[in-house]
Design a protein around this nucleic acid. Sequence first.
DNA 1: TGACTTTCATACCGAATGGTATGATAATAA
DNA 2: TTATTATCATACCATTCGGTATGAAAGTCA
Lengths: 207, 207
Amino acid sequence: MSLTANDTSKEGLSAYSKAKRDQIIRGAIEVFLQFGYEGTSMNRVAERAGVIKQTIYSHFNDKEGLFTAIIESLTLAHVKEQFGGTIDMNVPPRQMLKTLAKVFAGRQKDPSYVALLRTVIGESSRFPELARLYTNAVIRPGIKLFCEYFAVNPSPRIKDPEAIARIFCGTLVNHIMTQEVLYGSELFPFQMERTADTLIDLILGSD
Amino acid sequence: MSLTANDTSKEGLSAYSKAKRDQIIRGAIEVFLQFGYEGTSMNRVAERAGVIKQTIYSHFNDKEGLFTAIIESLTLAHVKEQFGGTIDMNVPPRQMLKTLAKVFAGRQKDPSYVALLRTVIGESSRFPELARLYTNAVIRPGIKLFCEYFAVNPSPRIKDPEAIARIFCGTLVNHIMTQEVLYGSELFPFQMERTADTLIDLILGSD
DNA sequence: TGACTTTCATACCGAATGGTATGATAATAA
DNA sequence: TTATTATCATACCATTCGGTATGAAAGTCA
């Protein structure tokens, strides 16, 4: 399932060994998401994880393998969380979009999601495969599900559901980007709810 | 005008010296935008610029100073370009939004703009001042100008101009991000024009 | 021309990098 | 218990890092 065989097989490890492995991963997540790939040293990962450097290299091939495994795992975990039955086909459009907006609002307040987004973008040139994974595993199914909902629940203003999906999700993701990554919440604050309400009225009408 | 005094004064330099300085900047732009701050070595900058390392250090204090100067200059250059009389208050709304959408479409095809965006986001944690500069110098005036236009040219669906501005610009910036940075144009292509047309119809009505 | 400044080439510095070797200690499994 | 495996501590490796020193060559300007 992984893009590359960067880690030793996860099967057949003792609980002791598996705990160490999780320890490494937890530490590596913190450090990589904070300092980026090149800004992170393996010594620091070991220190943060409370583990000796050799232990890391007995679980992962090299720095790239560790970083890749971390970002892949965070991305795929994010996918699962994203589809916790968020979109219910039997719910009316306005309620559905409001619920979806709340999902984005929740992401905005999740520092690890924000850091993942920033990291995938920041490393997209050095690690194109991770960016492609994000697109295929997060963006593509998100847009698709949105379209499927409006295929079942049409609405007069929605003539091009995929374009609408991109407008809806794009606006809210960009809101997270400008507010949480580019310090908008400090310099130029704006409530996501206000953007979302306007957006929903545009899409469904303000009746 | 600069945030920090990272470079020696630009005044009173001979043309010979100024040419070397531009040479450094051009090389540094290429390397920093491709490899990021930590991924860039001063040796590589010198090599790419066709200059010896000492020459760099006679024009800039240190690596941070060079990087900061580069990103500041690119950001401010982008601001000037952005306001090349793009928004004309006397033009009708649909035409104005179409023109604005074309500006974003032009940015999408400008690799140095895309790289700047990616870099500012990717380094936002290490260089928060650069991210704040981008927000204050690019995002804030963009939103403001948009609002001023619709204060002069009201439209029935535009009850909250600032929210509309964020939806319009946010959608198109996110389009650039997903298509050009996250490899959407390769994996999941979608024409910006299609998004923009749908967006404009939502905002102004499709009559 | 000559006085001066800048860039050149090259070599160097201490510190940090990713990654490895060794041998002792501790956890697991028989 | 014993045999094995994994983690420990520590030291080490070659390379690269940001940054500096020196002195020769080349540009500028009077």
